[in-house]
Design a protein around this nucleic acid. Structure first.
Length: 474
DNA sequence: TTAGGGTTAG
């Protein structure tokens, strides 16, 4: 858990004597406390009570309340009811990250009964639940990868006078698909028509993708044909999904033919940068990165420009084949077209080299970027500095200073700063640690919790009370 | 607002 690096509200004597107190302190906002009171009250109609609170919701507030509910272990159902209630509020919407947090905190995947418990609680309490609430529940099932519970919820909706719509069906179909349970997915697809809903492009693409992932290209193509026969117009996403599947199983030739077909059809089937990039990736994965260059020719001839993903994909392929010179050539070529910047391209090169364990090459490119005034992105900086911290923290510190001097405001992970601070303290480089502390304070970077205690301990042992107070006192 | 490509983790 991250803790605030600087907490001006605490007295410095308290902080230096008892850093763990400081670590346990968490900033609390008013809405959290307001909602928390109601969540603890065991009110059978939690939703009504929560609505009456009327305090502003945001993701940190939701996260905090979920954490509290999951920590106490007494309120998993209330916690989930809060989550579902929050998800249907007008001014707030859960993002996918929030679903992920909820699933992890309540360990829904391992405790699927939580889903049924919540719905049963709604029944028991006569709660008013609408279609929107059920979509939140279905999204939880999706995030927790629970197809059977998803199906159960879909059936249960009728008890609450809610009729599942296409989106609801598609959600559950997707969960079955992700589990590779295609028979169940197909059955749901059929069931949709029986309830006067019809599979749409989303249903279709979900199915095609899963058949492709399973290597069942024939089944995917069959589905494709059926949709065509029904007179539905297919779009570029559908075609690109099938194209990717065909290439993945190794049939690049057939893939190229399909790409031609898409170009001929034109309109909503015209290949996009995503289509070309996935084609390039497939060539690269088969160690044919030089041949992939012909795809780049094709896309440029069709007036489609490579973007950053295209470049990254290419660099990955070229470095895998040890063709670093070709990677440089490619970067020049793409940069000349003006769609991707030099800094972005070289950042991708650094990241790829480091990822492949070519640390020296990566560092060389990185330093060259700095000397040429090219701005490395956050990931390139973070990855390089992390590697350097593990080898020689002073080198990392020096590079970090250089980045600062050039005024490159890259988002370096707080983890990296914390690691560096820890390393400098361990080495007894107090001057540097002090300088880094100032930089972190200036940038508002928080010291990662796992390093706080060790950093304080080293500095205290070294008699650097002043530095400790500067770190924690600003 | 349930669907397509890469690199972090949130």
């Amino acid at each position: 858990m991250l803790v605030p690096f600087v907490s001006r509200s605490l007295s410095s004597s308290l902080r230096t004597k008892n850093p763990s107190f400081f670590l346990a302190t968490r900033a609390v906002t008013n809405p959290v406390e307001k909602y928390w009171t109601h969540l603890q009250s065991n009110d059978p109609n939690i939703e009504k009570a929560l609505t009456r609170v009327g305090a502003k919701l945001d993701s940190s507030c939701v996260k905090e309340l979920l954490t509290r509910c999951s920590c106490t272990n007494k309120h998993p159902t209330s916690g989930l009811r809060f989550f579902i209630w929050a998800g249907i509020q007008r001014e707030y919407r859960h993002n996918s990250h929030m679903y992920n947090i909820a699933c992890k905190l309540f360990n829904i995947n391992q405790n699927p009964n939580l889903i049924t418990d919540v719905i049963d609680a709604y029944t028991l309490d006569n709660s008013v639940v609408n279609l929107k609430s059920f979509k939140v529940v279905l999204n939880l099932c999706k995030e927790a990868k629970l197809p059977n519970e998803g199906l159960w919820v879909l059936k249960k909706m009728q008890d609450f006078n809610c009729k599942p719509d296409t989106t609801a069906y598609n959600l559950v179909i997707r969960v079955f698909c992700e589990k590779g349970k295609m028979d169940e997915a197909l059955m749901l697809m059929q069931e949709m028509s029986l309830s006067n809903l019809y599979p749409d492009m989303v249903t279709f693409i979900t199915m095609v993708k899963s058949f492709c992932d399973l290597g069942r290209i024939q089944d995917a193509s069959k589905l494709f044909k059926i949709v065509k026969q029904q007179g539905c117009s297919l779009n570029v996403i559908a075609y690109s999904t099938l194209l990717d599947g065909i290439c993945k199983v190794g049939d690049l030739e057939k893939g190229l033919n399909l790409l031609d077909e898409m170009n001929k059809k034109g309109g909503s089937c015209t290949p996009t940068v995503v289509t070309y990039t996935s084609m390039i990736r497939n060539f690269c994965e088969k160690k044919k990165s030089m041949e992939a260059l012909t795809i780049l020719d094709r896309m440029e001839n069709n007036g489609c420009l490579a973007n950053r993903v295209t470049v990254t994909t290419f660099i990955n392929g070229l470095i895998t084949e040890n063709r670093i010179d070709e990677a440089y050539k490619l970067i020049d070529r793409v940069v000349n077209k003006g769609n991707v910047s030099k800094g972005e391209c070289y950042s991708s090169l650094v990241v790829t080299l480091l990822r492949f364990g070519k640390d020296e090459d990566g560092e060389k490119v990185f330093r060259k970027m700095l000397s040429n005034g090219l701005k490395p992105d956050g990931l390139a900086c973070s990855m390089l500095l992390k590697k350097m911290c593990l080898k020689e923290v002073m080198d990392a510190f020096e590079v970090c200073n250089e980045i600062e001097k050039l005024g490159f405001v890259s988002s370096i992970d707080s983890e990296i700063y914390s690691m560096m601070m820890d390393g400098l303290c361990r080495k007894g480089c107090l001057m540097e640690a002090s300088k880094l502390a100032r930089l972190m304070i200036e940038k508002g970077v928080r010291l990662n919790g796992s390093y706080s205690e060790s950093v304080v301990e080293y500095l205290n042992n070294a008699g650097e009370m002043e530095l400790v107070s500067r770190i924690f006192g600003g």
